[in-house]
Design a protein around this nucleic acid. Structure first.
Lengths: 399, 399
DNA sequence: CTATTTAATTCGCATACCGTTGAAAATATA
DNA sequence: TATATTTTCAACGGTATGCGAATTAAATAG
């Protein structure tokens, strides 16, 4: 355990204040004091230090708390957008999405490269990612030197702490030290994170979990991922591993083990389609789900059947997750949601059946169909969170 | 989030020092300083305060660190056994087990009441528990006034924070505020906790997980429970709920939902036996598993079949848990282990099949057949842990 | 122009940690 | 036996932190 000294103490309170400013927009010191339970004295000292470091800015205008504003007007504080720049990326099998954000997490530029990269050699993938990062940074009118951190969100089992990719559907190899590789190429600190964790943080910061400290997110894409928010923090497994939901076992069928991925993986749902023709082409180009959506509307029975089976499998898996974590909300994201009503209905039904009676009503299911940018923005948030924590003031006094 | 002030700082370091003393037996200040990374100055101050509060004791004798001990001999410090007394209990359907322990967690007296209590009215159960606590305390040569805290470990979904029993196989009602009830009856602070959590802490403190900060425990009893140790702390669900493994869904069979409890619950394994005769009598008395063990040795095929099916179900469930938490060790406890090789073999096989290849070898399975005392001792440890954290020095200066 | 109200800063205090120094308690050596 | 050596531990001074009370700052109301 880390030893508690004054430095840690200040680090905690600093992060607390900074996070309060981030979450509650332009905010006055008095209100920060109320929210954090810190004395106004301490808040003044910390905000002075944050101002000095250029992480926040004062705004004298917006004191509109009340018409009958009597006393000295409040000075509102907000994050200084220019305090840092980060790049966030979503790396998927058939597309790369990049965003550059400022210190607040606001998107400055975005770039989508619809390229199929899975099963390419690492060098090729690294080339493409490097290129995407550089182009997106240029699009934002910046240079890579202006970027503080890059965070890459990708599917699979990612060990955040070490930057190792234990296994990922887009890499042929296992145990790739992708963080070091990209850090060297970009000459900018680069971290890797599970894409599911990235969008979990995205929802906590900007999306449908802003009001919660605990929740669970399930991502239904090529792989099936899990993000757990516990006490306002990403819960990473014992070793900092991300969770790979697709490996969950749903049953022992006649043909052996039945894993969730074999029922609800993107390729498995679409895979029952004829292996040639326009649909196969669409899949190859990463438009499978969009196409599937059209087919389902046209009442393609094979596909509807697959969607229903997938929905059942996911519904049961969610019930199991809820049994373990009992979160107040479960957010579902990912391309498979595009399968529409047949999928969602069977999911909801299976969930309702599978959830134990004692937990009925505990968790609320929320479906979210954000775009890829949002995932990339989540990766940026992961990078920003680490910046917030890092000691700007090496440890100097508050002056 | 709690605000960081000097008080919190000292509380953290105090707990850290106290826990180091607890874990590493009689230990000198220098060694505490090495282990905690705190300066010897700080360690001296904190230990002085602990000595002053009577929580620890000096021992001048045992300085045998080395034959060639040159300088001033070390003064070894250890927990003062008499600093507190707690009662821990395991409350199961057909027996009540109590222990009184001292401040170190050493058992002073134990008491087993082989009574079937499930489905009794709350008042009756409370009577029996109260009686057991009082008798066990008397057996230890103490009075209830000498007891600081009582902790009751029981199966089911327990909300530790509020002391509510959301649902438990031994209560007919749900949402019982058992902690308040027993606190009032005993006139001693009483907390409730999941029995699985209790034995998880028992293993972390005294058993097969002393060397780990992360692990998972699975309890196979009348109900199937889960305990997760994360960063040396019990991981309680979002709402402080305990996990009820039996509700996990293993598949959608022809007859609807198949839950783990229907495959591996104690009564389900034994339930396939004829409903009358000596065996049924044994079950009613809570000796079902012991009896089953004998029958399995005698090659009772019905029972062996049930054991094998249960093992498969549990093996798959464990694989799923490992997929989610990736712990270095999984400890299995509970009466069902008594089913012996048929059960364990099929469990191991199913686990090996179900564990995803990328996680193969990550987690080590450990079987543990401790007695009921150990569970009760774990409950005592839960109580002690809260005592360790509580502010003895309301916040006075260190003198 | 003065009184009032609210916001934010300044000042003094208490606490906690740390590094250094020095005292205490034992052994080793002359 | 007397002195040196080694190790442990407590005491002193320095610095950082947060908090409460008093003070200054900036606006409105009368």
């Amino acid at each position: 355990m880390k030893t508690a000294d004054p430095e840690l103490m200040r680090a905690i309170n600093r992060l607390n204040v900074l996070d309060t400013i981030r979450r509650h927009g332009p905010i006055a010191r008095v209100e920060i004091s109320e929210r954090t339970q810190l004395s106004t004295t301490t808040v003044s000292a910390i905000t002075a230090s944050l101002l000095d470091d250029g992480l926040i800015l004062p705004r004298h205008e917006g004191d509109i708390r009340n018409e009958a504003a009597r006393g000295r007007p409040r000075v509102m504080l907000e994050l200084n957008p220019d305090a840092a720049r980060v790049v966030g990326a979503k790396i998927a099998a058939n597309r790369l999405v990049f965003v550059v954000t400022d210190f607040r997490g606001d998107v400055l530029s975005k770039l989508t490269l619809p390229i199929r990269i899975d099963r390419q050699p690492i060098g090729v993938i690294a080339d493409l990612v490097e290129d995407g990062v550089r182009r997106c940074v240029v699009d934002a009118g910046l240079s890579l030197e202006d970027v503080d951190t890059v965070c890459l969100g990708l599917p699979g089992v990612i060990e955040h702490r070490t930057g190792q990719i234990r296994s990922s559907p887009i890499f042929r190899d296992t145990n790739v030290d992708f963080a070091s590789e990209m850090t060297a190429r970009l000459n900018t600190p680069t971290i890797v994170e599970s894409d599911a964790h990235a969008i979990t943080l995205a929802h906590h910061w900007f999306g449908k979990a802003r009001d919660l400290e605990d929740m669970v997110l399930i991502s239904l894409e090529q792989t099936l991922g899990l993000g757990v928010l516990h006490d306002n923090q990403l819960f990473r497994g014992a070793g900092g591993l991300s969770h790979n939901l697709g490996d969950l076992v749903l049953g022992m069928g006649p043909r052996g083990i039945v894993r969730l991925s074999s029922q609800a993986g993107e390729s498995e749902i679409l895979g029952e389609q004829p292996a040639s023709g326009r649909f196969a082409e669409a899949i190859r180009l990463g438009r499978g789900m969009t196409h599937a959506q059209a087919l389902i509307k046209a009442e393609d029975n094979t596909l509807i059947g697959a969607a229903i089976r997938a929905g059942e499998a996911v519904g049961v898996a969610i019930a199991n997750i809820v049994t373990l974590f009992a979160p107040p909300r479960v957010i579902l994201v990912g391309s498979s949601l595009a399968l529409g009503e047949p999928f969602l209905d069977s999911l909801r039904n299976a969930y309702a059946l599978a959830i134990p009676p004692s937990l009925k009503g505990v968790a609320e299911l929320v479906f979210d169909d954000s775009t890829d940018d949002f995932w990339a923005q989540g990766a940026a948030a992961v990078a920003l969170y680490e910046l917030y924590e890092s000691p700007w003031n090496t440890t100097g006094p508050a002056l």
